[in-house]
Amino acid sequence: MATRKEFLKTAGLVGLAGMVNPTVAMAQAAAPKAARSGPGWADGSRLVVSVSMQFEAGGQPDNPESPFPRNMLKGYKDLPAATWYEYGYKEGIPRMLDNWDKYGIKVTSHMVGSAVEKNPALAREIVQRGHEAAAHGLDWSPQYMLPYEEEKKFIQGGMEAIRKATGITPVGYNANWLRRGDNTLTILQELGFLYHIDDLSRDEPFITKVNNIDFVVVPYTLRCNDIQLIAGQWFSTDQFLRQIKMEFDQLYEESAKRKRMMSISFHDRIGGTPQLVKATSELFAYMQQHPGVVFKRKDDIAKMALADKHTIRE
């Protein structure tokens, strides 16, 4: 597999027995059953693994959240924190791209528009190497409180930045910290999006109706997320690796009987560190030893969900 350096050169960046309590039995019979998927994945996959690579660095505001204490005097910039973010596009994403190639997997990169505008060549490289460019807003501003037209302009701005840099019009969306507003899905559907990920309610994709048209939810994760575990809870790489392996083992067991999807999320300045990429290498090697495990981009997952009559509808 070509290294990133080689790629850049060639591409040019182009029932228990016994009595059952009758009261309990009656309650169970009367309770509505949660919707469950039918057969597994239509393409014969046993467990689908969905990897996110957040492209955010460079689009952050002044004095953003970072590992440094938030004790800067008003009016001054946190310059060391800025370098922590720079690591994401200088080292993190390039290192992760080589690691994805090493294991032959394709991921979905949720791109902040302003980050793409500052590093268009990197955004273009992500797409040229076979990964999905998905939208992640124009910048780090929250959008859930924006009036309809302002939110639409905000989403369109991020879309246009990605399209200008990569030539690709994104079909997937991720709001800042998953916090969409009442109008978000309507706007996304009107703009031609196919799916969003701002939902934690299932371990498989499902379909909702937006403007009376099918719209897919490809659920995201906080349990298998480096910003939540490594940066937020200060997990060691060993703890991170063990947690995700345990999640994988349980979902793989369940996938023998029903459709299952596992979501994992990496952020440019966190997931692209040497130690975490090394842990990820061990993780992917472990997963690929299991028959029927496949890695898919979220746009491909959404298309499969739409085409499958057994996909859950809510």
Rank of each mutant, 00 (worst) to 15 (best):
Val14Met: 14
Arg223Val: 12
Glu149Trp: 10
Val24Arg: 12
Phe284Leu: 11
His131Asn: 09
Glu150Val: 12
Leu122Ile: 03
Gly292Ser: 05
Ser263Trp: 03
Ser52Arg: 07
Pro80Gln: 07
Glu204His: 09
Ala123Trp: 05
Ser114Met: 08
Thr311Ala: 08
Val294Gln: 07
Ser141Gly: 09
Asp198Gln: 07
Lys152Arg: 14
Gly12Phe: 05
Tyr76Asp: 00
Ala27Phe: 12
Val24Phe: 15
Val112His: 02
Tyr103Pro: 01
Val49Pro: 01
Leu229Ala: 14
Ala11Asn: 13
Lys33Thr: 10
Tyr103His: 15
Thr83Pro: 04
Ala11Thr: 11
Gly137Leu: 06
Val218Gln: 05
Glu149Asp: 13
Lys102Glu: 12
Leu200Gln: 02
Arg260Glu: 14
Gln275Glu: 10
Tyr85Ala: 07
Ala175His: 04
Val171Cys: 09
Tyr89Leu: 10
Asp226Pro: 01
Glu132His: 02
Glu91Gly: 00
Phe284Lys: 01
Arg179Thr: 12
Glu253Val: 03
Thr221Asp: 08
Gly181Trp: 04
Pro205Thr: 06
Gly192Phe: 00
Asp249Asn: 07
Leu13Met: 05
Lys33Asn: 13
Trp177Pro: 00
Ile93Trp: 09
Asn183Met: 08
Gly272Val: 05
Ala134Asn: 01
Arg313Thr: 12
Trp177Thr: 15
Ile126Ala: 01
Gly158His: 05
Tyr87Phe: 14
Ala29Lys: 14
Glu125Ser: 02
Pro147Ala: 02
Glu65Gln: 09
His267Trp: 01
Lys33Asp: 09
Glu247His: 15
